[in-house]
Amino acid sequence: MNIAIIGLGEVGRCYVTALATLSGTTFEFCDTHLSQAGRDLASKFELSVHSEIGPWLAEADWVLSCVFGAVSLDVAGQCFEHMKVGSRYADLTTASPADKRVAAVRAKAKGLNYIDVAVMGAISLALSQTPLLCAGEGASDFAALIQSAGGNARIVEGGAAGDAISLKVLRSVFTKGMEALAVELLMAAERQGVREKLYGVLGDIDDSPLEDFINMLVRTHTIHAKRRTHEVAEAQKELRGSGLTSLVLPGVEARFAKTAAASEANPVGESPSLEDALQWLLKHAA
């Protein structure tokens, strides 16, 4: 099995090391701005590094793109021109969902399998054990390849190319928002001298599965947004009284206020289901 690695940055080098443990595996390397670490890896495998994509890719059974997301679509197009029919292209970049969907269509037209791969953690910390999320035609094959090399990969069941990177971005929306709130929460609790007691009053949140908790928040948001807008404003006043100005809560207040205004004109009903709440929000308060 011949594997071409496009881009010998941190991700590319990591999976060369992992896949090299598979018997019968050979490599081709390509990097337009080769680092010293990339040179050292190539030297270890006694391989030269291609400075550009070209006909040499016709020998590859797998092509793993590990380049910057901004150039991912262009690099994919160049690779597709030289890959043999039936070979597989795994895009491990941070390209947008839209770019990955376009690449998948172009790959299919060339008789190639395109796999959208989202790296769901820090490669520098977990190396090949970093979770990978895979979607698109051939996703199960790529996941199996990585798993056979001792890596950590799973597929998005029924997912198309673009779905894996979409889920990564959405996860980031949640975790980065939670991070910002956690920073302000603990700063305020420390300033008020109640940090150790805080976890006790948050304990009931642990009693519900995360999915149920998120669904409950969205469903009840459409009903209680007006009251909660005032509660958010009061919370900001309390923080200011402690000498802290929230950077997060003004955005939260704006979100609640927009929903409240839309609800005044187009009430959602007394007890909407999650589906009803989501559709109403997308129609009236997006």
Results as ranks from 00 to 15, higher is better:
residue 146 I to C: 10
residue 133 L to M: 14
residue 147 Q to W: 05
residue 127 L to K: 15
residue 145 L to R: 01
residue 111 G to W: 10
residue 143 A to Y: 04
residue 100 K to H: 04
residue 129 Q to V: 08
residue 111 G to I: 10
residue 105 V to C: 06
residue 141 D to N: 14
residue 134 C to K: 05
residue 141 D to R: 06
residue 125 L to Y: 09
residue 123 I to Y: 09
residue 105 V to S: 13
residue 106 R to L: 04
residue 135 A to K: 01
residue 118 A to Y: 00
residue 150 G to H: 11
residue 111 G to D: 09
residue 130 T to N: 13
residue 121 G to S: 14
residue 101 R to S: 14
residue 130 T to M: 11
residue 149 A to E: 03
residue 109 A to E: 15
residue 96 S to A: 11
residue 136 G to W: 02
residue 110 K to R: 15
residue 134 C to M: 08
residue 137 E to I: 12
residue 109 A to K: 14
residue 134 C to H: 04
residue 111 G to N: 09
residue 101 R to W: 11
residue 148 S to A: 14
residue 130 T to S: 13
residue 100 K to V: 03
residue 111 G to L: 10
residue 127 L to S: 07
residue 112 L to F: 09
residue 113 N to K: 10
residue 115 I to F: 09
residue 119 V to Q: 06
residue 108 K to S: 14
residue 108 K to R: 14
residue 104 A to R: 02
residue 129 Q to C: 12
residue 137 E to P: 00
residue 114 Y to V: 08
residue 109 A to P: 04
residue 141 D to M: 08
residue 116 D to N: 05
residue 104 A to H: 02
residue 100 K to L: 04
residue 147 Q to P: 02
residue 143 A to L: 08
residue 145 L to P: 00
residue 149 A to W: 00
residue 126 A to G: 03
residue 99 D to R: 03
residue 138 G to E: 03
residue 115 I to G: 00
residue 120 M to S: 05
residue 138 G to N: 01
residue 113 N to T: 12
residue 105 V to P: 01
residue 112 L to H: 05
residue 148 S to I: 05
residue 149 A to N: 02
residue 127 L to W: 03
residue 123 I to T: 11
residue 120 M to L: 15
residue 125 L to F: 12
residue 99 D to L: 07
residue 117 V to I: 15
residue 129 Q to E: 15
residue 130 T to K: 12
residue 140 S to L: 13
residue 144 A to R: 14
residue 107 A to H: 01
residue 117 V to Q: 10
residue 114 Y to Q: 09
residue 126 A to L: 15
residue 131 P to T: 07
residue 108 K to N: 11
residue 110 K to P: 01
residue 128 S to P: 07
residue 146 I to W: 09
residue 131 P to M: 11
residue 96 S to N: 04
residue 105 V to H: 10
residue 136 G to M: 05
residue 146 I to D: 05
residue 99 D to G: 07
residue 127 L to D: 03
residue 111 G to A: 05
residue 128 S to C: 13
residue 98 A to C: 07
residue 120 M to H: 07
residue 98 A to P: 02
residue 101 R to L: 10
residue 114 Y to W: 12
residue 102 V to H: 00
residue 141 D to C: 08
residue 140 S to R: 12
residue 119 V to C: 13
residue 127 L to I: 12
residue 147 Q to R: 15
residue 141 D to V: 07
residue 121 G to V: 10
residue 125 L to K: 15
residue 136 G to C: 08
residue 104 A to D: 03
residue 130 T to H: 13
residue 112 L to I: 15
residue 122 A to Q: 03
residue 116 D to C: 09
residue 121 G to Q: 12
residue 135 A to N: 05
residue 149 A to L: 00
residue 118 A to V: 03
